[in-house]
Design a protein around this nucleic acid. Structure first.
Lengths: 189, 189
DNA sequence: GTCTATAGAGCGATAGAC
DNA sequence: GTCTATCGCTCTATAGAC
C-alpha cells in the first residue's frame, strides 16, 4: 500500500469484495475496507456516498461476474439440453466459489442493496435465450423462473448447511440428479 | 403489561418472534424485546444466556410451526401426488405468512443460529414419508432434497424481490407451473 | 425477579486541518 | 485526497441494589 495511495471506486469495490469473501458480509466495516487499502475510513466517502452505495456496487459486480460465468459455460456447448445442464453446473460452482458474495447479492432481501437491472435483467436476458432454445420462446419465462428457483434453492440450502443432517456427502450427485429430474419435466411440459 | 410481569422463556420467544415479523430480524434488540413485554433488557438474561440463544429458540419454534403446517396440509389429501402438491403450496404459504421468521431460520447461513434437529431432521422426517409414497423409499431422499430446493428457491427469490423485474404478476401460477413441471419429472425418473 | 447504572465496544458519518 | 478528531448512536452484557 504505497503512498500515492491510488484509491479509486474500483479498488474499493475490489477490497470490499475480498473482505466479504474472507470475513463474511458482517465483517465489512468502512474502516476495515480502508485498512485493506492502507487508508482511513473517511477517505472512502470521496468515492461512495455511504456504505450502502458501496455494497450496492459490490452486488453489481457480483451479478456481472455470475452472468459472464454462465455465458462462458453455456457458449461452447452444442445442443440446448447440454447448455442448460452446463448453466446449472456453472451456477452452483459460482456460488461455491464465492458464497458470501453470492449470499449478499441473492440471499439478502434488503431492498436497499438490490440492483434490479444487474441482478435480474442482465441475468435473465442472458439465460432466457438458452432456455428458449430448449422449450420455445413463449414458455421461456416460466421455465427460467423454475430453473433459477431450483438452482438457487439447492445452493442456498447447501450454503445454509441444511442438507448436512441428512448426510452431507453425495451432494454433487444429488444436484445433478435434481437437475436431470427437472429437465425431464421440462421436456414433458 | 401488568405488574407481576409474567415474563418467561415462552413469552420472550413469542415477543421476539412478533418483533421479527413486524420489524425484520435486524430490528430485534434485547431492549426492544424487553420493551414489548414491559421489562428492561437485562431481565431477559434470567431466561436466556445471550441473544443468540434467544434467536435459536425462535428458529426452533419457526421450524416446528412450519413442520406442523406441512403435516396438516398433506394429511387430508387422498393420493401421494395430491399430498406433494399440497405440501408445496403449504410451504410457500407459510413463507409468505411469516417472511422474516422464515428468512431467519432458513436463509441466514449463520451457524450459531442453526438448529439442526428442528430444522432438518424434524422437517425431513415428516416429509420424507410423503415423498416415499410417490417415488418409493429408496429414491425418497434425493427427491426430497430436490423438492425442498425448488420450493425454497422459488420462495427465496420471490422474497428477495428478484422475480419482480420480469413482471411480478402471475407468480402464483408460475409456482404451480414449476411444481407441475417438476412432479412430471419425478414420475419419469 | 426486576431494576439502575455502566462498562466497553463498534459503527456510520461529518467537519475541518493539511 | 487523505488525514485527525469527534459526534452520536446502538447494542450486548455485567454488577450490584432493591
Amino acid at each position: 500500500m504505497p503512498y500515492p495511495s491510488q484509491v479509486n471506486a474500483e479498488t474499493i469495490v475490489q477490497a470490499a469484495a475480498s473482505l466479504i469473501e474472507t470475513h463474511g458480509a458482517d465483517g465489512v466495516s468502512l474502516s476495515a475496507v480502508g485498512a485493506a487499502l492502507g487508508v482511513k475510513a473517511p477517505s472512502l466517502y470521496r468515492y461512495f456516498d455511504n456504505k450502502t452505495a458501496l455494497l450496492r456496487a459490490v452486488n453489481q459486480q457480483t451479478a456481472a461476474r455470475l452472468t459472464s460465468a454462465l455465458v462462458e459455460a453455456t457458449e461452447p456447448e452444442p445442443d440446448p439440453a447440454a447448455k442448460v445442464m452446463a448453466m446449472f453446473r456453472a451456477y452452483r460452482a459460482f456460488a461455491h466459489a464465492h458464497p458470501a458474495l453470492y449470499s449478499l447479492a441473492y440471499l439478502s432481501g434488503s431492498p436497499e442493496l438490490r440492483v434490479g437491472e444487474a441482478v435480474a435483467d442482465q441475468f435473465g436476458a442472458a439465460m432466457q435465450g438458452v432456455i428458449a432454445e430448449l422449450v420455445g420462446a413463449e414458455r421461456a419465462l416460466p421455465v427460467l423462473r423454475a430453473v433459477w428457483a431450483l438452482a438457487h434453492g439447492f445452493v442456498a440450502l447447501e450454503l445454509a448447511g441444511l442438507f448436512e443432517r441428512q448426510g452431507g456427502a453425495g451432494l454433487d450427485a444429488a444436484y445433478d440428479e435434481a437437475v436431470v429430474l427437472f429437465v425431464g419435466g421440462i421436456r414433458l411440459g
